[in-house]
Design a protein around this nucleic acid. Structure first.
Length: 799
RNA sequence: GCGGGCGUGGUGGAACUGGUAGACACGCGAGAUUUAGGUUCUCGUGCCGCAAGGCGUGGGGGUUCGAGUCCCUCCGCCCGCACCA
């Protein structure tokens, strides 16, 4: 908001959508307080905001922009989904999902909100279900390459996206099986380190690998082992500690380069079926995980390469030097001797491909986006299931497929599934009876394209190309780091997918020009002796501790963490606004910490912000001011001149600070300006300078405290609304000083300050420095050996 | 484990590309106003020291006339990813 208001003052057209998080929380709280049924929340967002805004004489036109709660947005999102189906950007397949029996209904349940069991893993089951997926992996390469162009994004986020996409170049190598069951003549292993193939000593396949499954029939032990492994992957902690376990199938494969070597085939609990081919060759000498496994099951660990000048065989630590380091390959089949690992990898892949021993492959960690949710809360997927025609897209004229209002939340699972009539519909293809899809879309879908929709929120199609071309792309996107990967990657995918459907253009492939990740508002946490969380209002906080207001008992103060309902460390925005006013809250949140960092909400800090705004108001009310619209008097006092200089310095510095997102520093400059103004006391003849300072203060503070600044402006009889006034310009002549103060160091320690003309040459500065009493005291008898003069900065005398 | 970041007063934090460390605010102390408390105003406040002075940006070392900033090393904290072959 600060950036948007600043940009408007600089004369830009600003389309400034509000995120729903900020409004969502109060709306959600209000809905709960009023006992609104969760099924109505989607609609109650709008209702609550209407109730809040209409008394202020504001219309709620922009309510249409709220994603799931807006039938129009829902219709267009469903239309978009249908277009994606047509372009083969979405598909349905069977997949294992975490099936969460806890639906939105539980949010209304006190216990769950208390943080005892909300989403605790225990309630989540793994089920195999038919799911809808977006083909985001089709864009993996482009999504990765384009990250280089996102120059105004934080490096951190760019790196996280790169890692998430996780590109790797490797090769698929078939290992010929001996005495294998029907249909299996080779195991295909994926490797990014084929240069270490000489060090291969075993093959490990995933428990879910087809071969492993096929062998289960003949071995009860293997079946039991596999069943054990499948159970494991549910809880994360178990995953972390899980030991590398294996099961020897008794099968053997031939080493592709050295057919005389037979390698044992193991099933390993650490091999993932959904990465690569679900099978790896184990190279213990150059992979720690393989080495642990080999030591446990007494498998050999031959080196494929050594460090130069050190041929010690591998011990308990795998030899994995950086890929840019030079190593000495030992007896490498492609004749590679001394080379970097990276070079060795590339040459090995080329050599093996040429010999027909494997197929070079580029793989990504990125998976297709599973967008199905078995929840009520969300935009229904607009397809129907027809016995005769199968899966049929709904007709666009029937959109939106809205959610029913009468739903039963008393049982776990998706309430749409058991709705008595909602599923019944007519097949758009054959006209026969059909059933609606009950999966709803991941809410990330809603946020993946709202910025495009907002450019024309009433268009009959998902976007109005003309409006999109005018407004897009987003110049400055601001959000929390928690969106660094999912939301921002999905949106980048959506922009490409929408371009493919003609809703955007190629110029919109990167929808967010610049990204800023802001911190969160945090607060201390409080717990009583019984371990119950207490809200800040229930606690009396003093400098040396805290007690409960209810009974005066001591309260344990916990760390300051992100405000959350479950920890009760929440100060509701309405309460802040009621107590201090919205501008005080805005001012405080901006003033204390740099915006990319978390800010600690403290009552004392808010009070201080409040006091400052009051002080500015008093300064205005009590000051003797020149009439509005006057021009600067030519002959003014030193005090007036100093104030004018301070004013124009503030313009320069605050402007630079806002441009650089250093809002806390901008606010510090405004404190300084107010301080300079206050210092002038009741001295007469400062009317113009005071008016200038106050008008400037109002203008510079307006992005932070828009209402307060507007009041100040009006009290100063400023012309029109402050919102329409241009951003002030610093007067260059007032930024220049005739004389400056320079620090003088002797041997690097500051010993004195000298006053010199701003444009004094080095020789005269040196002379002035050496003449200074404080400096001479430290010179000693030998006198200076060397004098360093950094113009405008510092003088250093070396003795 | 891999990748990234950070470490400055009692606290939140300033310090532009190596150039006066601690802006601004909170807190604390003293004083003024007030019947009192609060508000408001003034002054002080990195640490040690009566002072002169000395010491100070997680520890140690280095480069430099000069280091919070650059390099090496150790320690601590935070974030992201994680049996990724």
């Amino acid at each position: 908001d600060v950036v948007a208001r600043y940009k408007m003052a600089r004369g830009f057209n600003v389309l400034h959508p509000m995120g729903w998080d900020a409004f969502g929380m109060p709306a959600e709280n209000a809905a709960m307080e009023r006992g609104i049924h969760p099924s109505e929340w989607t609609y109650s967002y709008v209702a609550v905001m209407k109730a809040q805004l209409e008394p202020m004489g504001l219309s709620l036109d922009w309510s249409r922009e709220f994603a799931t709660c807006d039938p129009d947005y829902m219709a267009q999102q469903q239309a978009l989904f249908l277009d994606f189906m047509e372009q083969d950007l979405v598909y349905r397949r069977s997949a294992m999902v975490n099936w969460d029996p806890v639906d939105m209904t539980v949010l209304a349940n006190e216990q769950v909100i208390d943080g005892k069991g909300w989403r605790s893993g225990a309630q989540v089951e793994r089920r195999e279900l038919a799911q809808w997926f977006f083909r985001i992996t089709d864009f993996a390469e482009d999504l990765l390459d384009s990250i280089d162009g996102l120059e105004s994004w934080p490096d951190k986020v760019r790196l996280m996206q790169r890692n998430w996409i996780g590109k790797s170049r490797g090769i698929e190598i078939p290992f010929a099986l001996e005495d294998a069951p029907e249909g299996f003549d080779a195991i295909l292993c994926y490797s990014t380190r084929p240069d270490t193939l000489n060090g291969a000593s075993f093959i490990a396949i995933a428990p879910d690998h087809p071969l492993s499954k096929a062998l289960e029939g003949g071995s009860a032990d293997l079946a039991a082992f596999n069943a054990e492994c499948r159970k494991m992957d549910t809880t994360e902690e178990a995953f972390e500690k899980a030991e590398k376990k294996g099961f020897d199938t008794g099968l053997r494969v031939r080493h592709p380069i050295h057919p005389d070597r037979a390698l044992p085939v193991w099933v390993g609990n650490f091999v993932l079926m959904d990465y690569g081919s679900g099978a790896v060759f184990g190279c213990p000498a150059h992979d720690q995980r393989d080495l642990d496994f080999a030591r446990k099951y007494e498998l050999p660990a031959p080196n494929a390469f050594f460090l130069p000048g050190d041929e010690t065989p591998v011990g308990d630590e795998a030899l994995v030097p950086p890929k840019t380091d030079t190593v000495i390959y030992s007896d490498h089949f492609a004749g590679i001797g001394e080379a970097t690992s990276q070079d060795g990898i590339d040459r090995t892949i080329d050599w093996m491909e040429a010999k027909g021993l494997g197929q070079g492959q580029v793989k990504y960690r990125l998976r297709d986006w599973g967008a199905s949710r078995q929840r009520y809360w969300g935009c229904p997927i607009p397809v129907v299931h027809c016995e005769a025609c199968g899966i049929v897209p709904e007709k666009k004229e029937n959109l939106p497929i809205a959610l029913p209002m009468d739903v039963d939340f008393s049982k776990p699972g998706n309430p749409l599934d058991r709705h008595p009539t909602w599923r019944d519909c007519v097949c758009p293809a054959c006209g026969g009876p059909a059933k609606r899809e009950t999966d709803t879309m991941d809410t990330f879908v809603d946020s993946s394209w709202y910025f495009a929709r907002f450019t024309a929120p009433k268009a009959e199609t998902p976007t109005d190309p003309e409006a999109a071309a005018y407004w897009m792309n987003v110049d400055q996107y601001i959000g929390g780091v928690e969106h660094a990967i999912l939301h921002l990657l999905y949106s980048r995918f959506f922009a490409r997918a929408m371009a493919k459907c003609g809703h955007l253009t190629k110029a919109n492939h990167e929808p967010f020009q610049a990204l800023f990740t802001q911190g969160m508002v945090c607060h201390e946490t409080y717990r009583d002796a019984a371990g119950r969380w207490l809200t800040p209002e229930e606690v009396e906080r003093s400098s040396d501790g805290a007690t409960a207001l209810a009974d005066g008992a001591a309260v344990e103060i916990g760390p300051s963490i992100k405000m959350s309902k479950s920890k009760k460390n929440v100060v509701a925005p309405e309460d802040i606004v009621a107590r201090y006013g919205a501008d005080t809250a805005r001012w405080f949140v901006m003033s204390d910490s740099p915006p990319e960092r978390d800010v600690e909400w403290t009552a004392a800090g808010a009070e201080a912000a409040h006091r400052f705004l009051q002080r500015v108001w008093r300064l205005m009310a009590e000051a003797e001011l020149a009439p509005a619209g006057g021009s600067a008097p030519t002959d003014i006092s030193q005090t007036a001149m100093d104030l004018r200089r301070a004013t124009h310095r503030a313009i320069r510095d605050v402007t630079a600070d806002i441009e650089g997102f250093a809002f806390n520093k901008a606010i510090a400059r405004l404190y300084e300006l107010a301080g300079a103004l206050g210092k002038t006391g009741t001295e007469a003849g400062l009317g113009f300078a005071r008016r200038e300072a106050l008008e400037t203060l109002a203008r510079l503070a307006s992005p932070f405290v828009p209402h307060f600044a507007e009041e100040l402006w009006s009290a100063l009889q400023g012309e029109g609304l402050l919102t329409g006034a241009p951003w002030p310009q610093a007067d260059a002549t007032l930024l220049q000083e005739a004389t400056i103060v320079l620090p003088v160091q002797v041997n690097g320690k500051r010993r004195a300050e000298i006053k010199v003309a701003a444009d004094a040459d080095a020789a005269s500065v040196e002379a002035a420095a050496l003449a200074d009493e404080g400096v001479r005291k430290h010179l000693g008898e030998a006198g200076p050996r060397k004098v360093i003069v950094v113009p405008g900065r510092i003088v250093n005398v070396v003795v």
